[in-house]
Simulated assay, not measured.
Amino acid sequence: MSHHDPQHKAAKAAEPLSERLLERLRRAPRVVLPTLRHHLPVVPDWRCRDCAQPWPCPSSQDHLRHEHLTAPATVFQYLAACYTRALTDLPAAAGSTLHERFLGWLPRRQPHNRTPERRYGQ
């Protein structure tokens, strides 16, 4: 069945979203952000290629924090994919520890603090 085949497309659409998302996440860590050329992760032990610290190391965090300013969704998706893969690669590590390591250091967006009156100019 070709990927252009309507039956193939229908079968793909029938797959649960979570399965399709998980499959994309499993493949995603192999592709890095275009400007992240140093301090890359070495899998399956998730250590930095350049400094051997647990990845993301401080240098990669600095770089990714800078990328996050202009492309927050891309950085978050990349790190979420890495986190998902690390859960499999590092089964002895606690999930909450890995979550903090991969995602917990990202800057959080501030919620909009607008009341309905301010939103509509009343």
Rank of each mutant, 00 (worst) to 15 (best):
R109P: 12
R85G: 04
R114H: 14
G104P: 09
A28K: 11
L17E: 13
R37W: 05
R30A: 14
R109D: 12
L25T: 01
Q122G: 04
Y78D: 02
A81E: 05
L69S: 12
L79I: 01
E15G: 03
T115R: 04
L40H: 11
A52F: 06
P116A: 01
W55V: 05
Q7D: 14
V31W: 12
Y83N: 07
V42R: 15
S18V: 13
V31Y: 14
E67M: 14
D62A: 09
H112A: 11
E67F: 11
T35F: 10
P34Q: 12
P16L: 14
M1L: 15
L21M: 14
P91R: 03
V42S: 15
P56E: 07
T74V: 06
R24V: 10
T70H: 09
L79T: 07
H68A: 08
D45V: 09
H99G: 08
L98R: 03
W55C: 02
E19C: 05
A13K: 15
H68I: 04
L40W: 11
V31E: 15
R108L: 07
P6F: 02
M1Q: 13
Y120D: 09
A11E: 10
W55N: 03
S60Y: 07
K12T: 13
T97C: 03
S96R: 04
G121M: 04
E100R: 00
R85L: 05
L98V: 05
P72C: 10
F76Q: 05
H39M: 06
L103I: 03
W105R: 05
R37A: 07
L103M: 05
W55E: 00
A71H: 03
A94E: 15
A71K: 02
R30Q: 13
P111C: 10
P107H: 06
L103W: 02
E117Q: 06
P111S: 12
P29L: 05
A71P: 06
P56V: 00
L17Y: 08
K9P: 03
C51M: 08
P72S: 12
A92G: 08
P54D: 01
H4S: 13
S2I: 00
W55S: 02
P116T: 06
N113M: 10
L98K: 08
P16D: 15
W46T: 04
A94S: 15
L40I: 15
L40T: 14
S60R: 01
A80L: 13
Q122N: 08
Q77K: 09
R109K: 10
